[in-house]
């Protein structure tokens, strides 16, 4: 097992290295440079001033050298400084925005799991029943609906017409003066719509996957055996079938972390939530390479950890994998 793990870890390290290499060159291949925000179509910008910026930001060096410098800094966990007029360390910018993104995604993941799994089980146990059809229709509506459109409609309904939820932001203006319990309510009200939209849009994938896993499990011979020996249907479904069906689901859930983060780009902008998704969007627009790279690194680390956990999960469950 240890041998298997160390081999896996080495693979991941190489993959990670590859990701940074390809991302770095891809980002730099895109038209435009970080200095463009300051210099494009700006009459006060002379070639001399542009050269000052490029020198200070280290953009005057060849691309491969810049990559090695980036790699060297990264090995010391230094993401460099942002190429915007604030010149702040990239990690500072990300750190202040990471908690809210993680909070929203963690709550969303939890709710997705909590809702999608029962839907999937139910659909598998009673396939093609009316309730199966209704829930299937419901989750697909969520899947098919564009996030930005749904967000606007809900903002309009709950924020403007009914006036029961705030339209955007994460805190009210008078948040500091509220008591603890009111602070909690205030945050809940602000986070309700973003979380609802994230959850609603992600139910389809997981519940459908759960449904097919469960159906497969239910068609296995051990289920026939279980039923044959007279076990109650509840025990058959929740003990025998579910245990086998749910393992891959946990893996899938882990792998959907990066997807949720990229989804954050959209709803964080719409709901004015100061998270890393919004930061990524503005950094991409401004060609702020260091910030983009840092976010790419974070998302790829999450993906790789998700992969690793999936592998470990399989290895634990299936001895054939760890022997091979």
């Amino acid at each position: 097992m240890l041998n298997y793990l160390s081999k896996k870890a080495a693979e991941l390290l190489i993959t990670f290295f590859g990701i940074t290499l390809v991302s770095f060159f891809l980002i730099n291949l895109a038209p435009g440079k970080p200095t463009d925000v300051v210099s494009d179509l700006n009459p006060r910008m002379t070639p001399e001033i542009r050269a000052i910026y490029e020198k200070q930001w280290g953009l005057d060096k060849p691309l491969h050298i810049r990559y090695f410098i980036w790699l060297k800094n990264f090995s010391k966990f230094d993401f460099g400084n942002s190429f915007s007029s604030d010149s702040r360390p990239v990690w500072d910018k990300i750190r202040e925005r990471l908690p809210i993104t993680i909070l929203i995604n963690a709550i969303s993941m939890f709710l997705i799991f909590l809702i999608a799994v029962p839907i999937g089980i139910h659909s598998a146990v009673k396939p093609n029943s009316l309730s199966d059809k209704v829930t299937t229709f419901g989750v697909f509506v969520g899947f098919a609906m564009p996030v930005f459109w749904l967000a606007l409609i809900l903002q309009l309904i709950f924020g403007v017409w009914l006036n029961v939820l705030p339209v955007s932001g994460i805190k009210s203006l008078n948040y500091e003066n509220l008591s603890f319990i009111h602070k909690f309510f205030d945050s809940t009200r602000h986070l309700f719509l973003p979380i609802f939209i994230t959850v609603f849009g992600s139910l389809a994938g997981l519940s459908r996957y759960m449904r097919s896993q469960m159906q497969e499990a239910l068609s296995q011979e051990y289920i026939v055996t279980a039923r044959a020996k007279g076990l109650p249907e509840k025990v058959v479904i929740y003990k025998h079938a579910l245990r086998n069906a749910i393992l891959p689901i946990i893996t899938i859930l882990g792998l959907s972390v990066p997807g949720l983060i990229s989804g954050s780009v959209i709803f964080e902008t719409i709901f004015a939530i100061p998270g890393v998704g919004q930061l990524l969007y503005s950094a991409a627009m401004a060609r702020d390479i260091n910030v983009i790279m840092a976010e790419v690194v974070i998302v790829s680390i999450l993906t790789l950890i998700g992969n690793l956990l999936a592998d470990i999960g399989y290895a634990l469950a299936d001895p054939r994998i760890r022997v091979k």
Binding site: L152, V160, S168, T269
Partner: peptide
């Protein structure tokens, strides 16, 4: 950041 959201904020 979003202009439509901004307008909804104005409405509320």
């Amino acid at each position: 950041p979003d202009p439509t959201t901004m307008f909804l904020e104005l409405k509320t």
